[in-house]
Design a protein around this nucleic acid. Structure first.
Lengths: 346, 346
DNA sequence: CTTTAGCACTCGATTACGCTGAGTGCCAAA
DNA sequence: TTTGGCACTCAGCGTAATCGAGTGCTAAAG
């Protein structure tokens, strides 16, 4: 037996997967002959199916049922068989419309993206908020709230605003705070956070800083303001869509998945993986390397601002998913968000 | 037949409800005689049960099953039968421990509260973020991001920080922004947002403002910064606990509830109701007045800062809930949060 | 008047069983 | 190489039988 697939085998595999995606039922040889373009008898189709099963692309839940795709089947389908079409104009408009309202802050926009992905795809939408260290410094402001508390407000190039409450051990005069603010904004604008951190460390070691009280303070404060790793948060919308999927009908499995979502850390990891990748990425089942998500697929794409990748977004669902329609939606959304982030904040 | 309940009937009703809460199974007369303190034959218990059913406190799913409490039964139980004990020290410590870490911003604290409620109660935790208009003005700061964009950072007395991006139609000089900031902080600190709004409106009508360009700007900006009604957001944690409840085993019902959560607006309304109430409030089933939540109970309590109620928190679950343990937990959490908000921000 | 034992009855849950039909694998003919 | 034919398998479904927990009622006991 050949260990490659003839064109006909591929056609049949494709038809099986698409039928299964549509119906969630094991597909038999008979219905295939109807669905399939080629004129072929059920018996011939069965031969091919047996072959595909032996090669590991299909499996049958029991003897007298049809076949369902394996993970390997889906992988092959996504890699080789799938032709993703462009979104049609109507769908593009429908998505774009959601971002029409003015004055959205970045965080709101990302939340909207997650929600839109969820409703358009009928799966759960995921958006990873940009990690602090990959973003570009734009502005920082220190506000004195009480003798011992300073609020740091930090704005990234792409428009993300973050607050951090800093406990200080000395009573800083507002004038000093203002000077610190001015100095930092003038010195750091345009650098990435990583660069800012590096800069702080080297300058603090330098002679000048050793003797300038104010400068020292500036560094201490900004370092406190920026050390927050809590970013890399993720926005999940539309968990309820999971409850529509027949494959998750049993509660314990369902619960495990929802818990995984609530915990977020696993999803953060998975979305992280899409950061360097170009274009849309598909992670199927066990490729996630988490048993909790063994029955799920993720479709992700990175979005970026002016200066490189900011984060990733996508959807998660059962691995029986209409990839051909979901992939362009995720792709389009990532591009749209990238564009909006670029123009929105000059 | 009496339309009040004898002490014995009450005892039996209580026993039934507690048994049902524990087991989720209809309870029969036989098990009751074991559970019940009083020496009584199953037959006698049955008589009482029939009576309780006629009065509407119990119902039976079918002839040959035991009885389960009705909504009215729960209501009576919560109102008259329930003795809430204080939390024991260990539990209090367990809860308090979660807030030990320093420098938590209010938003983080509320999220932690929701999460803790969820894990401790094994139900879904809810926390309503303070509504803007009920909070006290503490500080406002305008940061110029670009010629046409100003970022307003607004801090409430209780330590909640909120950002709003404002599009302006003229290029404001940073000096002017600073003057505006100073003026507003000096004039408005300590007022409630409602008062601030009123003040803005009256002052804008006044003669002085008409001619002072800067003052006008100040009012326009602050009014833009504060008109955000988006607050009154709510933090939901632990939705997955719903999936543990046997009463929500069927997916469609489950899905309706999860969707209701995602939509939030209904929960906002329900939590709002607890704002004026003192102490813990229990809303059972149809008392919510939402069919989506007809099988759910909410247990809520208000938390407050220095100057009055800020918001509410609580848990939501099936109405078969161990009220006697949940109520003190919610109560304690509300008090704890109130205390923390008071001390944390001097 | 209240409580209790006894008993017939109800009805959901469980098990058993047979049938059906979709689907398969294999073989022999085209 | 394809196809029709055929025996075989097995989940799903409906029906029937059984089981047993729990009830309501009645009549006797307290």
């Amino acid at each position: 037996m050949a260990n490659y697939l003839t064109e006909r085998s591929q056609k049949i595999l494709e038809a099986i997967i698409e039928e299964y995606i549509a119906t969630a039922q094991p597909v038999g040889s008979k219905v295939l002959t109807r669905t399939l373009g080629i004129k072929l008898s059920p018996a011939s189709v069965r031969n091919v199916m047996a072959e595909l099963e032996e090669l590991g692309y299909l499996t049958s839940p029991h003897t007298s049922a049809g076949r369902i795709p394996t993970e390997k089947g889906y992988r092959f389908y996504v890699d080789s068989l799938l032709r993703v079409s462009d979104l049609d104009v109507r769908q593009k408009d429908q998505i774009q419309l959601k971002y029409r309202q003015q004055g959205l802050q970045m965080a709101d926009m990302l939340r909207e993206a997650s929600r839109t992905l969820s409703t358009v795809c009928h799966y759960t939408g995921l958006v990873m908020v940009p990690r602090l260290k990959t973003t570009i410094f734009r502005h920082i402001e220190f506000v004195k709230l009480s003798p011992r508390q300073v609020l740091a407000v930090f704005v990234t190039q792409s428009g993300l605003v973050q607050n951090k409450l800093i406990e200080v051990d000395e009573d800083l005069h507002p004038r000093d705070l203002e000077k610190i603010t001015n100095y930092l904004n003038q010195a750091m604008t345009g650098l990435s956070i990583q660069e800012v951190r590096a800069r702080i460390i080297t300058e603090m070691a330098e002679e000048k800083a050793l003797f300038d009280r104010l400068l020292r303070r500036a560094f201490v404060l900004s370092s406190a303001a920026l050390d927050d790793e809590s970013m890399g948060d993720i926005i999940i919308e539309g968990t309820s869509h999971f409850l529509e999927q027949p494959e998750f009908a049993d509660l314990p499995r369902m619960k495990r998945i929802v818990q995984t979502f609530e915990q977020k850390s696993i999803l953060v990891d998975l979305l992280d993986r899409g950061l360097e990748a170009k274009g849309v990425q598909v992670i199927i089942g066990s490729e996630t390397e988490y048993t909790e998500l063994a029955d799920c697929s993720l479709i992700t794409a990175a979005y970026s601002g002016k200066r490189g990748t900011l984060g990733t977004l996508g959807v998660i669902g059962p691995y029986r998913m209409p990839y051909s329609t979901i992939i362009p939606i995720v792709d389009y959304t990532a591009n749209l968000i990238s564009r909006l982030l670029d123009t929105d904040n000059d």
